[in-house]
Design a protein around this nucleic acid. Structure first.
Lengths: 114, 114
DNA sequence: TATATATACCTTGACAGGCGAAGTATAGTG
DNA sequence: CACTATACTTCGCCTGTCAAGGTATATATA
């Protein structure tokens, strides 16, 4: 749990946008899918998840509407906007870029010979 | 600059430990090497760097001593401890692990067919 | 001589994201 | 009737990053 939370910090928005690229969804479901995809090795904390939704909506990357379920708990659905799609592609590129940098930088340096 | 800083957040300690795996060094030099290794695509901000040194020393991962240069600015050298080496290997594993998770999670979901 | 640049380190204060904890509400199950 | 699963929300703390400012030495340049 806590192993990865520090390292995935900063990817929360990308993960949510990635999920919404597959169609509208709601918080609880998105989180369950994350758990499924990762074999229960990762999940977003609720506070993190809903904070991210708020942030993404404020920045225009997603929009939301209440579902019309007439049974069970109400669901707030989220939809990715075209701005959100653009942001997703950018963040994905950023990830590929920074992944390479980190791979380079966390290789142990060689002791220079004397 | 700011593109990657968010994403590399959380790897600062690993990067520093990786550098010190190659032998004792000091802040300014470590940062220059980071710039070299990444073709000037990344560098640690000074405040971040020195905060990290403090954190790593307090947690017993590194130790420090003043260099005995008799010219130029004084340098504080850092040495990785055996705890630090263990931590480095652990953090490297964490990175490999979380890298896979992120790769899985930021793949755009497929729209389910209707 | 004065000024700028490179080397080298340190601290403070603000900001942003993650998250523990607590709360609200509905539906089904033992 | 209690418990669990579903589903969303908010508050307040913690931690890492970093802009901004400061200190000090040595060299190159005007």
């Amino acid at each position: 749990m806590s192993i990865t939370s520090d390292l995935i910090r900063g990817h929360t928005d990308t993960i949510i946008l990635a999920s919404l690229m597959g169609g509208d969804s709601y918080g609880y479901k998105i989180n369950k899918e994350i758990q499924l995809k990762t074999n229960n090795q990762y999940e977003l904390k609720e506070a993190t998840l809903y904070t991210a939704f708020k942030r993404l909506e404020e920045s225009g990357c997603i929009s939301s509407y209440w579902g019309d379920e007439n049974t069970g708990a109400r669901r707030r659905y989220y939809s990715i906007t075209s701005d959100g799609r653009q942001t997703y592609y950018r963040l994905k590129n950023d990830w590929d870029f920074s992944k390479k940098l980190i791979d380079i930088l966390i290789q142990a340096g060689h002791k220079e010979e004397l």
